[in-house]
Every structure is written in C-alpha cells, then in structure tokens.
Design a protein around this nucleic acid. Sequence first.
DNA 1: CATCTGATGTGCT
DNA 2: GCACATCAGATGA
Length: 257
Amino acid sequence: MEEIPTKRPRVELLNDVHSHPAKSNEKDETYSEEQYSSMSKYFQKSVRRLKSDFYEQPCITLAKNLLGQILVRKLPDGTELRGRIVETESYLGGEDQASHSRGGKQTERNMAMFMKPGTMYVYQIYGMYFCMNISSQGDGAAVLLRSLEPLEGLHHMQTFRRNLRKSNSKPLKNKDLCNGPSKLCQAMVLDKSFDRRDLVTDPMAWLEEEENKIADKDIVSCERVGIGNAGVWTSKPLRFYIRGNIYVSIRDKTAEA
DNA sequence: CATCTGATGTGCT
DNA sequence: GCACATCAGATGA
C-alpha cells in the first residue's frame, strides 16, 4: 500500500463532506440557470460506465475521444462529483521526449503508464499538486486530464479547492474550479492513492459515456503546456480541447484561427 | 491582459 | 543537486 503524500488528512476531507451533506433532489445553488438546464438534460439520460474497450485506443485517438466524457468521483459518504472532460494532452511514451516514459523507461513512479488501458496514473508534481492521467493503448502511453467543466457537486469542489487557500480568499468562480490538471485533482479529491487503479472497475472513480461525440471541427489541437524544452516534441500538437469552451485552462488563439 | 515569484518535496541523474 | 505535465497572488500596462 502506498502512503498518501498529502498534508490534508483524510479525516479532514470527511468532515468537510459531512458539513455539506449532499442534497440530491435540490438544485445546486452554485449553478447558473444555463448550467442547470444543461445538467438536467444530462440527468435525464441513462448513463453508463465506459468499459475497457473504450480505453483500448491509440493515445491521440483516446485523448480526442475523452473530450465530452464525464469523470465521476464517489466520496466515502456516497456523494458523487461529476465533471465533463474539456481538455486533454497525449503523452505517447517511448519516442515522446516530454513523457515520463521517454525512452521506454519504466520506474516506480510511471508504472501505471505501462499498465492496461484505463488505468489511472496519478503523480505528484511541484511537491504539492497531483496530475491525473489515463493509460491508453501503446507502451508507456497515457492521456493527461487538463480541465473539466464541473457538473455536479460544485459546492463540495469549492470546499476542497479552498481548503488549500487562505481563509480570507474569495469564493472561486465555477470556471476556476477544475481548469487545470492539478485544480481538477483538488476539486475531485484525486491523489496518489488512485495511482494504478482501474477506471473500468473502481468503486470510487469512473467515466460515464457522453453520447454526443465532439466533432473534429470542434476540437482544437495545439502545443502541450508546461513541458519545457523537449526538442521537437515541445511543439507537437498533442493538446486537445473543445473549441470555445470556457472551462479550458489555456486557450491557443493561433491554433483556433 | 502579460509576466514574474514563492511555495513545496519527490524522483531521478 | 536540480528539474518538475502547477497554482495563486502580485505587479505593470
């Protein structure tokens, strides 16, 4: 068993959950009317967990097909948090010099990148943050989740995000809850304990199918973020996001034109 | 809007 | 030792 390298003890998280009990039949007051309308439509549909065959796609294909899918996180008290994936990045493994698996190198940290498609790869970065990836088809290949459109449990997300901030900070806007790889991990309470777990079978985290696939014309492809100098790999168009979506972390106006 | 800085600790050379 | 798939706050335009 891995230790959870976070300064936030799990007990504190549970207390936060209990101080804001889920009210499944009530409108979440943090939604705008427009958001709630969109969400109601979502809840009327019969949703289903994505199965293993969904993840068995090449890294770039999976990164694009993940756009629009719903990430679900169930908390210990039964509360379910939901967010729609709106931004991803491909890390191809082997030849990709920006990938943790560059050169086909396997380490204790990146083991999940070599596990079966649908395995979560969660690692700690800058000492205080986490990033979540999903293993794809291909040795050492995985997709980084960069941004979510928060759909359900925004009040909880606000709490988890603000826990790490100063007490006098203002409430975050909805668009700032999950618009970054480590922000979404904070909001969805995803940490190192999820590393190497399987989205196909895990009781606390999974993906639900969104029927309306994002069309190619609505997907912006551009450079990845924060990978420094990785030679020719620095500028390859391996970041994908939904065109015009306000929940994306960083927009690339040049790529959008 | 753009750009800078400090926080923070682990993995890997 | 040092780089690091980041974030929030501050500053200047």
